[in-house]
Each structure stands twice: as C-alpha cells, then as structure tokens.
Amino acid sequence: MSPDKLVYMANQIGKFFAHQGEAKAVAGIADHIAKFWDPRMRAAIQAHAASGGAGLDPPVLQAVMILPTAGGEVPRRGGGEPTRSL
C-alpha cells in the first residue's frame, strides 16, 4: 500500500480529532485506525512510522506508534502491475 496515500488518510483522521487535545486525539486516532484499517494497511503505516514517519502529523505519528500489532496474517504482495493505461 502506498505510504503516501496512507499518510494522507491518517492525517485526515488526525484533523478530525485535533480539537480534542493531544492525549485524547492520539487515542481517538489510534482507535479509529485500529477499527477501520485492515491489517496490511496498519502494518504499512506502522512500518512507515518505524522508519521516521515522514509526512505524518505529530499526533498521528504518536497514534500509529501505539497501534497494536495487526493480528492474523498479512497478505503477501506479488505480481501486481500498477498502471494507468489500458
């Protein structure tokens, strides 16, 4: 999953919770991502955060860092050919 898109999505979530103050916002963001993102998306954003989390707003980065490790199996990549042409 493209880190850029996931970063954008996570920051969008962060903006909704921003008014709640840092502690509540971090918890709210983490809860939302845990409830609605599938394990591969969470694994990808966690990997991005672990490598510095470029582009993630500070509370969002904190939220990603406290996300529980995705349970179950994370599907393997392979064979996809991203393309915009026919």
Partner: peptide, 19 residues
C-alpha cells in the same frame, strides 16, 4: 477473523499494490 477487512477503495489500492 477479529480484524477489520478492506473497504472497496482499499481493495483497489491493495490490488494495484499486489496483495
């Protein structure tokens, strides 16, 4: 499974990504 699955846009992103 106790983990949430992919939403439609996520399915398409994951397909492009190969998973």
């Amino acid at each position: 499974d106790h983990e949430p699955g992919l939403r439609i846009p996520n399915m398409l992103d994951a397909a492009v990504d190969g998973s």
